[in-house]
Nucleic acid binder design. Structure first.
Lengths: 337, 337
DNA sequence: CTTGGCACTCAGGAAGCATGAGTGCCAGGG
DNA sequence: CCCTGGCACTCATGCTTCCTGAGTGCCAAG
């Protein structure tokens, strides 16, 4: 359907358009790439490519611009991930290694991605569901007030206040703490939810109301608040001289956690790289942007996703390289800590 | 120097310009406000106001636009904070009351401010220095690994991993925990730093290396990481059809925590409302914006600041009302929790 | 299938022009 | 002394017109 040269032309169109941000014409194409044919030939090829929907012209008699479909083909078959330089990789590693605490890791990841790609970076906090309970701590803050702290192996620490129905003493708290840790330590959070659900009955009636309150908070925390937080940064890169179009929509989408969740969720589940181009995107406001997503996690499992968001006219090979590298290193860091 | 009517004219110019975003001329002024004089008279007044630097014309023969100096006078002497409607106040209270945990309070505050003012909201986490230690928890995660959790009365929870020089047992940890809580509970963080510094000597030599490691982490956490985190939201409001000018600079400034710190720091220390207009702003990229800042805190003390950022051409009375109301309610919420 | 030639299209900038909002100034009136 | 109506002047804005050049599609010849 498309011979070798037509594909080469498409690739060239994408590359040139990405770097110049101007519709690319047949003449400049032969000049910049060493295609050994005349502009007229290229014009014929471009006519075909346009007919098939891979490129389009903004107005009659202007160069061609890739369509979403064109970018798609480019990403799938015409380009390869561009690996980062070893200097860059070392910089990433040392910068991430300096992080302490999950919050800091996530924050640094966002900055890193935004700076490497000069685009908007989006990072999801590691999912709780697949991680393992390391410890549960109960702190008595008052006669009827407790702080529940849940620590997971990915370094995530969740805390929440609980107002108790009855008064309680330090020793009640100690009992409950011991019970919880004995039952949950080392369990996956998914199991933990089930275990906690069955735990109320084992508590002596006297403290049962209080225990139930604590348990329900733990379950809510585990079951509901999963993967909720998403952080982004690098929005200043959106204000690039081109692409002010629809900026407001994009910013709105970014600030709406739910929307972001949905977008990340739609990307492939596998830990592999996934690219969403323009209108492939499920969210209205992001129809003019592309999203390069990767899962990350410690060990073999994908704990959460991170992504880079930019105009469809983006440097896909470079962005993909950066996303994939950062995802790998973040995973390593999480494993260590 | 400026008689009553000239002040009225200035006020009218500011109000009209804020609402229309177009230079305002003498005719439309007399039409929209019921000044009982002719346009010519107004023109004379405006000439004087311009001479004094309160207003300016973008080009000859266009209406006048307030200068930073004009806004300053308007804010200082010509306007009053516009209180929120009681419906709005109730909405704020219930929305904030639903928050659990400090993170959630801060997040909700940001959203609230951004929505109320349709501008960018900036909220600083409550300062640690003035708050009080409620509890310190040590969790043993491995033979040489500890998690330190510090809980303050403002609901802030700080955690950090510590790698220990020597191996330790559960009972060592329990000792240390007891020691720390006995020494620090109820103390202000500023005192706590000093106390911890002198604590190493009281530990028996066997565990001293480990204890020292823990102490130094606590001190670092208390002394250095204060007031560090700043959260913002509502950036989509920056993309208003006007004011795309310098948008990139503004976004960059917002993402740079250090810069934000500096800006908030320059605002008045008192818990009162402070307004910074245009070039009064210390940060280069924010020279076209105004910042309405207020301290907030539980009880009489200011724990941190929150602010709204918008174009100099903003609705000062309304913004000030919103900022001040939100600051008060956040303070109340923090006090309760 | 490729190529040079050629007529055609049309966005974008330059130039000219009209419009009108808004001004500054002045002379007369309270 | 301040207010007012009148008047000439300025200039951003929007309109039309025109021109240019990049880029096209098509065709006939190699």
């Amino acid at each position: 359907m498309l011979d070798e040269r037509k594909l080469a032309v498409l690739r060239a169109v994408v590359e040139d358009y990405v770097s110049t941000n101007e519709p690319v014409g047949s003449k400049s194409l032969v000049d910049r790439h060493n295609l050994d044919v005349s502009p007229a030939t290229i014009r014929n090829d471009m006519a075909v490519l346009e007919e098939q929907g891979y490129i389009t012209q903004p107005h009659t008699s202007a160069g061609r611009v890739p369509t979403d479909k064109g970018y798609r083909l480019f990403v799938d078959r015409l380009s390869h991930m561009k690996p980062l330089s070893s200097a860059e990789r070392r910089a990433i590693q040392t910068y991430l290694a300096q992080a302490y605490g999950l919050d800091d890791v996530v924050m640094r990841t966002v900055r890193l991605l935004a700076q490497l790609t000069r685009q908007v970076a989006v990072v999801q906090y590691p999912s709780l569901t697949r991680s393992v309970v390391r410890h549960i701590e109960l702190v008595r803050l008052g006669p009827q007030k407790l702080l529940v702290v849940l620590i997971t192996d990915t370094g995530r620490v969740e805390q929440r206040m609980v107002d108790l129905p009855d008064r309680c003493e330090d020793e009640d708290v100690a009992h409950l703490r011991a019970l919880l840790n004995a039952s949950l330590d080392g369990r996956r959070l998914t199991e933990a939810v089930r275990i906690v659900a069955g735990l109320t009955e084992t508590v002596p009636p006297a403290g049962r109301a209080n225990a139930a309150a604590v348990f329900s908070v733990i379950m809510a925390n585990l079951a509901e608040r999963n993967e909720e937080r998403i952080v982004f940064g690098g929005t200043a890169n959106l204000a690039a001289p081109d692409f002010s179009q629809g900026l407001r929509d994009v910013l709105e989408a970014l600030e709406e956690q739910v929307v972001l969740m949905r977008v990340l969720g739609d990307a492939t589940d596998e830990s592999l790289l996934s690219v969403m181009i323009g209108r492939e995107n499920p969210v209205e406001g992001l129809r003019t942007t592309s999203l390069v997503t990767s899962g990350y996690g410690s060990g073999g499992e994908t704990l959460a996703k991170l992504a880079v968001l930019g105009p469809t006219r983006m440097d896909y090979p470079g962005t993909m390289g950066a996303v994939s590298a950062v995802a790998r290193y973040v995973g390593e860091i999480l494993m260590e800590s």
